[in-house]
Amino acid sequence: MDKINIGIVVASDRAFEGIYEDISGKAIEEVLNEYILNQCEYFYRLVQDDQKMIEQALIELCDDQKCDLIVTTGGTGPALRDVTPEATQGVCEKMMPGFGELMRQASLKYVPTAILSRQTAGIRNRCFILNLPGKPKSIRECLEAVFPAIPYCIDLIGGAFIEANDKNIKIFRPKS
């Protein structure tokens, strides 16, 4: 079974400055550990809500750490400092807008302000990048909605083969 390299990028001025502890990055790791059977190596980056810093973290995780998957949290709202989608678009060769559409649709079942979220996804080289909201509950809801398509997407771009834990999540790969 392939080892999976996973980057987690937390974009938060307040967590970066130590005003509060990051819990969203830990929430991502917790959910992915429930979903993925492969051995996972996590590369964690905590950055300010700054487009250049986010872009640098994404590039380093894709190009140097050879991550198959990068999941970001934070910076997807409408506030002036929320620039994670712009950073993602700035480093990706292809954008995958369907992921953001599905996450917003899933979140709207729980909160009407989900429409304010701008999360998206994209591809850089052989790495799939997914933007998630910042709250652990929302992270779980969004990952539950989109994860079934992520392993096959990573297959298509030449990344590592992800084995899913069928007890916790059902993924989809077309039968060949």
Rank of each mutant, 00 (worst) to 15 (best):
D2C: 09
D2E: 13
I4P: 05
I4E: 00
I4Y: 01
A11S: 15
D13M: 08
E21M: 12
I23C: 11
S24N: 08
G25S: 04
E30K: 14
Y35L: 06
I36Q: 02
F43Q: 06
Y44D: 11
R45I: 03
Q48P: 07
D50A: 08
M53Y: 03
L61E: 02
D63Q: 11
Q65K: 15
T72S: 12
T73C: 12
A79K: 13
L80K: 14
L80N: 10
R81Y: 03
R81A: 07
D82I: 11
E86L: 12
T88Q: 00
V91R: 01
V91P: 01
E101C: 12
A106Q: 15
A106T: 09
S107Y: 00
L108W: 09
K109S: 08
Y110A: 11
T113S: 11
A114F: 06
I115F: 06
Q119L: 09
T120R: 00
T120N: 07
G122H: 02
G122K: 03
I123S: 05
I123L: 12
C127A: 07
L132Q: 00
K135F: 11
P136L: 06
K137C: 06
S138V: 03
I139V: 15
C142L: 04
L143Y: 05
A149H: 11
P151V: 00
Y152M: 10
L156I: 03
G158S: 09
A160W: 01
F161M: 11
F172N: 11
R173T: 13
